[in-house]
């Protein structure tokens, strides 16, 4: 167990370094992008004086490195700076947007894990059967289907034809209660889950097939234990490492790649915020957004690393 503690500390240290480098790169890149947040915000009728005033107000007249370290210093005090376009503190907005995004990404992830792993197991157990083929076809469709198209089809069927779900929008639990919130999140959840679901199913199938004929599975059968116990205790646990790897990468990708789903369903999430901010050259928002996403990815990786240790004792003891 001491080993696990050390490993976690080491990984956190590595993550901090990676995140630091990411912030630096993003910050410098944003300086290279043509356009100016102040000019964008004030519009074409702004006078030279106005532009100079606001530029000074936001500190954009200072050298780039000074600006960078001011930002980083602020982060340690829990401040992310102010958005030019929204004329407000960035931190509370980012937190709100992240919440909105997670309210369909996390359920979508759980859905993908449960259904994907289940389908993968079923396919592996019935290898070569019609069921296996059907699952493979579903997985292939899931992986290759464009998200926006799938989203539109779902809107067409469930909102416009069947009238059981709203077409789009976001209603928080405080505003409309849980039922309304959930209703609006069902379709985004399904759309964001589709692609990872398919890849989890495929990964589970292939890694289950790898362990299905292992000697220890025969040992387990010779013990007389049930098929279910063999599947879950002996096969799935041994097949889990590559599955968990794919899951960790997917979750990170899902949090960072929600733009399409948020656009289709008009969810005010992180992805939408990033797009608007890039268009408005509101680069402090972009930098902070990237920071939040990279922290999320780092956390996913950390969780995966910790899970490895729990799944496989051979990794734990290294």
């Amino acid at each position: 167990m001491k080993n696990i503690g050390n490993m976690i500390l080491r990984r956190i240290g590595q993550s901090v370094i990676v995140i630091f480098i990411v912030t630096l790169i993003v910050f410098l890149l944003m300086q290279l992008v043509p356009g100016d947040p102040i000019v964008n915000f004030l519009g074409p009728s702004a006078t030279e004086e106005q532009i100079a005033y606001y530029t000074k107000l936001f500190g954009y007249d200072q050298p780039v490195l000074i600006q960078y370290f001011k930002w980083i210093g602020g982060l340690f005090r829990g401040e992310m700076g102010r958005s030019v376009a929204m004329q407000s503190e960035i931190a509370p907005i980012l937190v709100q947007r992240l919440k909105n995004t997670l309210s369909f990404v996390l359920p979508g992830f759980v859905l993908a894990v449960v259904v994907g792993v289940f389908l993968g197991i079923v396919a592996a157990k019935n290898r070569g059967s019609a069921l296996d083929s059907v699952i493979s076809i579903i997985a292939n469709i899931g992986m290759s289907m464009p998200m926006f198209w799938f989203g539109m089809i779902l809107i067409l069927v469930f909102a416009l034809n069947l009238h059981i779900l709203p077409t789009s929008g976001y209603i928080s639990i405080q505003e409309g209660g849980f039922a309304e919130f959930a209703k609006h999140m069902i379709l985004p959840t399904i759309v964001i889950a589709m692609n990872p679901l398919a890849s989890f199913a495929r990964q589970t199938r292939s890694s289950m097939l790898e362990v299905i004929r292992q000697d220890y599975v025969t040992t387990a059968k010779a013990k007389g234990i049930s098929q279910r116990a063999i599947t879950f205790k002996h096969q799935l646990r041994n097949a889990l490492i590559p599955i968990v790897t794919v899951m960790g990468m997917s979750l990170g990708g899902m949090i960072g790649g929600t733009v399409l789903v948020e656009s289709i369903f008009v969810v005010p999430g992180l992805g939408n915020l990033m797009i608007t901010s890039i268009k408005g050259r509101d680069f402090m928002v972009v930098c902070n957004g990237v920071l939040v996403i990279s922290i999320a990815v780092a956390i996913c990786n950390l969780i995966v690393d910790i899970l490895y240790g729990f799944i496989d004792p051979r990794i734990r003891n290294d």
């Binding site: 292992q214 000697d215 220890y216 025969t218 040992t219 387990a220 205790k233 002996h234 646990r237 041994n238 799944i311 496989d312 004792p313 051979r314």
Partner: peptide, 10 residues
Amino acid sequence: DPMSALNPVM
């Protein structure tokens, strides 16, 4: 083969 007859994660 005892090397492979035991489940490595139990």
